[in-house]
Design a protein around this nucleic acid. Structure first.
Length: 492
RNA sequence: CUGGAUGUGGCGCAGUUGGUAGCGCACUUGGUUAGGGACCAAGAGGUCGAAGGUUCAAGUCCUUUCAUCCAGACCA
């Protein structure tokens, strides 16, 4: 009911929601548009955080934390930036509650109105740049490479768990540099970090590219992104990295004295990924049995299910399992023994599959007799009987293989769904099938908007790492000359 | 804000021409089971989104209102 790109798609939302809820990742909170991330889901996010954080730090980035609330006036400074966000924000207007004079409960104390409203951050550029002003005086203070892990809030009209929620968790990096080149390099470096993370750890292929001017982040001169293809044929923007030029430096008056003693505005980049990556993970690999987690991000990589009838058998299986667990843990795997005695094995099998645990080991009296264990892998659903002494090695190989296999599978899927369109009719037909379409575009915003209006397709990116796109041609919509193909898709 | 739909135990739903609420799952207890989502028995749980109206009688009809979901506008 979930996957193939040709048929359904109406059921896909349902499938996605089911998995997110049933696999214990998250649920809707009573507050409209907000989300409760449950322990199992959060454990995956923590793994993502840990890996990304390490990758950032290896490039010299340091973590910091800036306030949740931003004075409204800060948003009046950078006109272009404000255009992008100001409309859909939560605003704090009062600072005190009082008992309701007309009954039980509390009301907002009208006398506690703030002189200046505070905005719940939709992103932190403004507060960070107003702070950077104090940090930056000389060329010796640069570059500044800061990241923060935090929550942000955007008052979205329609929300979907992980993919679009009013409040979400993310990291936002904000860097300040002496030269345009350095800031551009930083933006490029970070989008490559995101691409590596997606490919290596999430086992999710991505296309790296530039956003068209229309799709650019408000206030940016260039926006780089990674775009992934979901199993229903829609694209998902999984991370962005912006070259901000001197816009914020000028708005917040951040200047430094260069080696010659001249005052210069600094150059900026910002970059971020969010809990949306969780949604990407679900949609990139999930199947009809539930979630499929890449071993690198699975909170539990191996789950063991004991099978027994009598107490004696239970004890024997369990002691064998504890020994195996130890050897697997010594090899660096995270292992859990599911010893809940109220549930039957079949139920546990189904439940752990739903949660996407990569490898399952079942052991029962039969195995004890033979000195084996039944090993099951989540990605292919194949079972094999493995002698206990070879188990540790087999599991290590299998985890490795799953990580690679689901990448290969996702890559194959994506490559099968990147097609070229050379005429407008062809384009309109292909876009209905889903997937990425490589097509020529005349480079104008008007054409882009027209194409979107007629087909709901947007330019996902102008790829930087695809030689196929470099060629002369004619815009599919206007017929005007074009020097390269760009990537179109319908998207989340 | 525009268009469509839905509100009934924790979840998913049924409820006919109005007659005073029922099913599945989950839950509790006891037992039998256990190598792919067990079964039997007993039990607990709802003033049917809210307010008002029609009627001898409203989950059902009428009015108002609120909420949620889907499709748009906005967006990572």
């Amino acid at each position: 009911m979930a996957k193939d790109i040709t048929g359904r798609s109406e059921n896909y939302s349902q499938w996605y929601n089911d998995i997110v809820v049933k696999a214990d990742l998250a649920e809707q909170s009573p507050v409209r548009g907000c989300m409760v991330i449950k322990p199992y889901g959060y454990a995956i996010w923590e793994k993502m955080q840990g890996i990304l954080d390490g990758m950032f730090k290896r490039t010299g980035v340091k973590n910091a934390y800036f306030p949740l609330l931003i004075p409204k006036s800060f948003f009046s400074r950078e006109a272009e930036h404000v255009e992008g966000f100001a409309k859909e924000c939560a605003v704090v207007t009062h600072h005190r509650l009082m008992s309701d004079p007309d009954g039980p409960g509390v009301v907002v104390d009208p006398s506690a109105r703030l002189e200046e409203e505070l905005i719940v951050r939709p992103t932190s550029e403004t507060i960070i740049w107003s702070t950077y002003k104090n940090w930056i005086h000389s060329w010796r203070d640069l570059p500044i490479l800061c990241n923060q892990w935090c929550n942000v809030m955007r008052w979205e009209m329609r929300t979907r768990l992980f993919l679009r929620t009013a409040e979400f968790l993310w990291q936002e990096g904000h860097t300040a540099h002496a030269t345009a080149q350095e800031a551009q390099d930083e933006a490029m470096r970070m989008v490559q970090v995101y691409a590596e993370f997606a490919r290596k750890y999430m086992s999710m292929p991505v296309v790296v590219g530039h956003k068209s001017p229309n799709e650019r982040f408000a206030g940016a001169l260039d926006t780089l992104c990674i775009e992934a293809l979901m199993q229903d044929g829609k694209a998902l923007q999984a991370g962005t990295s912006h070259f901000l030029g001197q816009n914020f430096a000028k708005s917040f008056d951040v200047q430094y004295a260069d080696k010659e003693g001249n005052l210069q505005y600094v150059w900026a980049s910002s970059w971020g990924v969010s809990t949306r990556l969780m949604g990407a993970l679900v949609m990139a690999h999930g199947d009809d049995n539930g979630l499929v987690l890449p071993p690198a991000l699975a909170p539990i990589q191996v789950v063991m299910v004991p099978i027994y009838k009598t107490d004696d058998e239970h004890g024997a299986v369990l002691s064998e399992m504890h020994a195996l667990k130890k050897s697997l843990e010594d090899a660096g795997h995270s292992v859990e023994i599911d010893d809940r005695d109220t549930l039957r094995p079949g139920f546990k099998f189904a439940e752990w599959e739903l949660k996407g645990v990569p490898v399952r080991i079942a052991m029962g009296p039969r195995d004890l007799e033979n000195g084996t264990a039944e090993v099951h892998r989540r990605d292919t659903l194949e079972k094999e009987s493995v002698p206990v002494e070879r188990l540790a090695g087999r599991v290590a190989d299998m985890l490795d293989d799953i990580q690679k296999n689901i990448y290969a599978k996702a890559l194959k899927f994506r490559d099968e769904n990147i097609v070229k369109a050379d005429t407008w009719d062809e384009f309109k037909e292909l876009i209905e099938k889903g997937g990425f379409i490589q097509a020529h575009w005349d480079g104008t915003a008007e054409t882009e908007v027209k194409i979107q209006e007629e087909t709901k397709a947007t330019i996902r990116c102008i790829p930087i790492d695809s030689a196929v796109c470099e060629e002369e041609g004619k815009c599919i919509y206007t017929g005007k000359p074009s020097h390269r193909r760009v990537l179109f898709a319908r998207s989340y």
